[in-house]
Amino acid sequence: MHPIRLGLVGYGKIAQDQHVPAIRANPQFELVAVATLGPHCPGVDNFSSLADLLAHGPQVDAIAFCTPPQGRFALVQQALDAGKHVLVEKPPCSTLGEAMSLIDEVKQAGVSGLFAWHSRFAPGVANAKAWLKGRTLTQVRVEWKEQVRKWHPGQAWIWQAGGLGVFDPGINALSIVTDLLPGSLFVTSAALSVPDNCQSPIAANLSIRSQAQVEVLAEFDFDHSDNELWRIELHSEEGMMRLDSGGAQVSIDGVPQGVSEEGEYPAMYRHFAQLIADKQSDLDLQPLRIVADSFFVGSKETVAAFHE
């Protein structure tokens, strides 16, 4: 069986650090072309635009999108119009309407699509799913705090309208929580801290409830120290499981547990290959919907200007 010929749109930090290594380590894929306005990806043909790649590049079966969410909708539409399978980095679009439209367009195109909530593929998430079976969950506590200057240096788009600010990393935590808790989650309150010179929040505190009335409390901070805190605690009547380092580490009642050695992005691309083989799609919108609801119901406090 021939590998899936893959094109990549956008070659920034996340593509260089995560996507390309995962693609090249997976024999189910062959990276054949990259569309980028920045540095070129070595070892493949590089093009200045997706349109140029599709018109003049090598044949591709699928395209992965690593551009900022603003403007991504039209690019994914180009790929779907060309009949390509699509993998779309999180958040898939800058609005719910665009993302909802892509779900319909993927189906109409008869291709496979993946909204790439990569944190769902953290090794400890599978442990958590297994642990929750037969247990009565009472509360979920989330602390997701990192330093934007370290993880998004020079990326002004993240502070613009549609850039999500602290919800860019915070949505990773929400993608895990929505994967673990069945049914819909509802934002009951949100407090958003927005720098005086930005359009998007630098911190947020959320209160969420599940259909089963489980309380989810989340604290997000984008101006934390260099020591990241990516933690989710699952409190049940039978004990407590904690996911640390974004789900890479797991403990139950303080006792460390073993997890898979496969990383998030390799597992995500393995999932994408299986979706293509099965002619299926995975286009969940609940993490983005929770962020949208947080903006909708949230109180906003103006805080000191952000300077890199």
Rank of each mutant, 00 (worst) to 15 (best):
residue 113 G to H: 06
residue 114 L to Y: 10
residue 115 F to E: 10
residue 117 W to Y: 04
residue 122 A to V: 03
residue 123 P to N: 14
residue 123 P to W: 04
residue 126 A to V: 11
residue 128 A to F: 00
residue 129 K to Q: 14
residue 130 A to H: 06
residue 131 W to P: 09
residue 133 K to Y: 09
residue 134 G to N: 08
residue 135 R to H: 14
residue 136 T to M: 03
residue 136 T to C: 05
residue 137 L to M: 06
residue 139 Q to M: 10
residue 140 V to D: 04
residue 145 K to G: 01
residue 148 V to Q: 10
residue 148 V to P: 13
residue 149 R to G: 12
residue 151 W to T: 05
residue 153 P to E: 03
residue 158 I to T: 03
residue 158 I to R: 11
residue 158 I to D: 13
residue 160 Q to S: 07
residue 160 Q to P: 09
residue 163 G to T: 00
residue 164 L to G: 08
residue 165 G to Y: 04
residue 166 V to P: 11
residue 167 F to T: 07
residue 170 G to E: 01
residue 170 G to Y: 02
residue 175 S to P: 01
residue 176 I to D: 00
residue 177 V to I: 14
residue 177 V to L: 13
residue 180 L to H: 10
residue 182 P to W: 06
residue 187 V to G: 07
residue 188 T to W: 05
residue 188 T to I: 07
residue 189 S to T: 06
residue 191 A to Q: 08
residue 192 L to D: 00
residue 193 S to M: 04
residue 196 D to P: 11
residue 197 N to C: 02
residue 197 N to T: 10
residue 201 P to G: 02
residue 205 N to F: 05
residue 208 I to R: 01
residue 213 Q to S: 12
residue 214 V to S: 04
residue 216 V to C: 05
residue 220 F to T: 08
residue 222 F to Y: 05
residue 226 D to T: 15
residue 227 N to L: 15
residue 228 E to N: 15
residue 228 E to D: 12
residue 231 R to G: 03
residue 232 I to K: 05
residue 234 L to G: 07
residue 235 H to Y: 15
residue 237 E to C: 10
residue 237 E to Q: 10
residue 237 E to M: 05
residue 239 G to H: 01
residue 239 G to W: 02
residue 241 M to S: 01
residue 241 M to W: 04
residue 243 L to G: 13
residue 244 D to M: 14
residue 245 S to I: 12
residue 248 A to K: 02
residue 253 D to V: 09
residue 253 D to Q: 02
residue 254 G to R: 00
